[in-house]
Simulated scan of single mutants.
Amino acid sequence: MAERMSGNATNLIYKKQGIVTPSDWDTFVEVLITPLPAAFRINSSSQFCEDIKSQLENDFMNSFKVETTYGDEVEAIRPLPWFHEFLKLENETGNITRQEAVNMVPPLFLDVHRDHFVLDHMCAAPGSKTFQLLDVNTNQQIKPGSLPDEMVIANDLDV
């Protein structure tokens, strides 16, 4: 009941802000509660990066290509139980990062290169975008006693 009341209070706050017209309110709420698709990024710093890319491009794509068509309609891709397990395992071992697609966009727009210094001064936790920025700069050999040509400084209130 408390959860429902909290949701109602949140709805009231949104409504008072006039974010959408009253006639669009139900559509707005439906969009907000629609689950986001599973998305992930292959960590280029992983020693298995090329193997995972190959596996996804070859083996797994065959599973996705098996679609049923009805006239002009194509059945939507449906969740595959084994793929979820694949994502969990690869995420736990650090080979991929499960991350919402919308969160992968800012580092791409920054167009970070190996000689850039980046200050991630917003809340960095849990660190997926920060890790994505660091991933651009992988495999660089740093000489002992010297500094790298690039740097990512992440700042957050919680260590």
Rank of each mutant, 00 (worst) to 15 (best):
V74I: 13
I33A: 09
V118D: 04
V159F: 13
N103V: 05
F109S: 06
N139V: 05
S128V: 01
Q47I: 15
I42D: 00
N155P: 03
E90G: 03
L157Q: 12
L147Y: 07
L108P: 02
Y14L: 15
Y14C: 12
F109T: 08
T68K: 14
N58R: 07
P126W: 01
M122I: 04
S54H: 11
E50W: 10
L119R: 07
D72R: 14
P81L: 08
D51M: 10
N91F: 04
G94K: 05
V105R: 00
L80H: 04
P35Q: 02
L110N: 02
S6I: 15
S128C: 03
L147E: 07
P81N: 08
V136C: 09
E73T: 14
Q55D: 13
E30H: 08
D26W: 10
N95T: 06
N103T: 06
A39F: 01
F131G: 09
S46L: 02
Q99F: 00
S45P: 05
L80P: 01
T138W: 10
V136I: 15
D149Y: 09
N11M: 11
D156E: 07
N91R: 05
V66N: 13
M151F: 12
S44F: 07
F48E: 10
L110Q: 03
E30M: 12
W82S: 04
K53A: 04
I153S: 08
G127Y: 00
P148D: 05
V159L: 14
R98K: 11
C49L: 05
M61V: 09
Q99P: 00
D24R: 15
S46K: 03
T93H: 05
N137G: 14
M151I: 11
G71S: 09
V74N: 06
Q17V: 07
H116I: 07
A125M: 07
M104A: 05
S44V: 13
I13W: 14
V102N: 00
L12N: 12
D111M: 09
G127D: 02
E92R: 06
V20T: 08
N137Y: 11
L157N: 09
Y70H: 14
K88D: 00
I153Y: 07
D120S: 03
N11D: 12
E150L: 09
F83Y: 06
D72I: 14
K16S: 15
T93E: 07
A154R: 05
V159I: 13
N103C: 10
R4S: 13
A125P: 04
S146E: 12
M104N: 00
I96Q: 01
K16I: 10
M5I: 15
Q99H: 02
L147H: 06
N91H: 09
D26E: 14
E50T: 11
N91Q: 09
P81S: 09
N137D: 12
P79Q: 06
M122W: 02
A124F: 03
Q141R: 13
F64V: 13
A38I: 01
L110C: 10
L157M: 12
Q140N: 11
P107Y: 00
Q99L: 00
S44T: 11
E150T: 15
P35T: 02
K65M: 14
H84E: 12
P37Q: 01
S146M: 10
L80R: 00
P107C: 02
T97S: 04
D158A: 15
P37F: 01
G71A: 10
V66Y: 09
I96A: 02
K53I: 08
N91Y: 02
E150V: 08
S44N: 12
V31L: 13
I52E: 02
P79I: 03
K65H: 11
V152C: 04
T138I: 14
